[in-house]
Design a protein around this nucleic acid. Structure first.
Lengths: 115, 115
DNA sequence: ACATCGTTTCAATAGTTCTCGAAACATCGA
DNA sequence: TCGATGTTTCGAGAACTATTGAAACGATGT
C-alpha cells in the first residue's frame, strides 16, 4: 500500500529531516551533496536515504550538471494526510470536521484560543 | 520524536489495519481477541502489535472482565496530521491552505470536480 | 481449589533496515 | 584524454522488527 511506503520512508530521523529541509527549500530543491552536508551524513548513506524517499514518491530528482537536485513532492504528503484523515473517519464522518478544525487552529498562525 | 514513533507504528500492514478497525469501531473499541480474529492473526502476534500501537499512543486499553478492550486514540492521528502539514508548510505557509482545500475535497463526500 | 478462557511474556528464528568503506559512474574543464 | 568533483552502487556488519510455540498470568465460574 502507498500510505505504508510513505510512512516507512518518513519514519526515520534522517529522512524526515531531509524531507523537511526539502519542503522548506521548495520550489528550488537542493543537491544531494547539500542535503548530505546539512544533515552531517556521509554521501553514500544519504544516497541510500534519498533512494528510499524517491521510491516512496516523496521526492523527485533531476540532474543539473554534476549535481543531482532533489525536490519535495507535496502531493505525496497531501495524499498521506487525506488517507490518515479518511482512516479515522471512515464510519464516523462527524470526526473529520473535528480534525480539520484542529488543523486550522494548528496552522492559522495566531490561534484564537487554546483547546 | 513523537511523529516518527507514530508513523513507524502505522507503517505496517497489520497494525494499520488494526488501527482502521478500531477507528471504525469507535467509541466502543474491540477486545484483543476480536481484533486478532478479524485480522486472522495469532493472539500472541497481535499482542505484540497492540503493544507497539499502545507505546506510540495510538490506542488505549482497559480490562473488562477477562477481555482487554482497545480503543483508537484519535488525537494521536490528529497530531500526526498537524505535524505533517506543518512539515510541508514551514517556510511556505501558502501551501498549507492548498493542502487543506484538497483535504476538504477528499472528505466532503461528493467532490465538485476533479482536477 | 480447580479448570477454563482471554491475554501477555519469553525465547528463538528469519527477515529487514541502517550504516559506511571502497569502488564505479557521470560530468565537467583543461 | 586526463584529473577532479558529485553521486550512486556494492558488499558486509550491526541493529532492529516481525512472527510464533510454549509458558505464565489474571479473571471467572463451580
Amino acid at each position: 500500500m502507498q500510505a505504508i511506503q510513505i510512512m516507512s520512508a518518513l519514519a526515520q530521523q534522517t529522512r524526515l529531516q531531509v524531507f523537511a529541509e526539502l519542503a522548506r527549500a521548495a520550489p528550488d530543491g537542493l543537491s544531494a551533496g547539500a542535503i548530505a552536508e546539512r544533515t552531517s551524513t556521509p554521501a553514500n548513506t544519504m544516497s541510500a536515504h534519498l533512494a528510499i524517499l524517491s521510491r516512496a514518491g516523496l521526492v523527485t530528482s533531476t540532474r543539473s550538471g554534476r549535481s543531482i537536485v532533489y525536490k519535495a513532492v507535496e502531493e505525496a504528503v497531501r495524499g498521506l494526510v487525506a488517507f490518515l484523515v479518511n482512516e479515522c473517519c471512515d464510519g464516523n464522518p462527524e470526526h473529520c470536521q473535528d480534525i480539520i478544525e484542529n488543523l486550522r487552529l494548528d496552522l492559522g498562525s495566531p490561534k484564537p484560543e487554546a483547546t
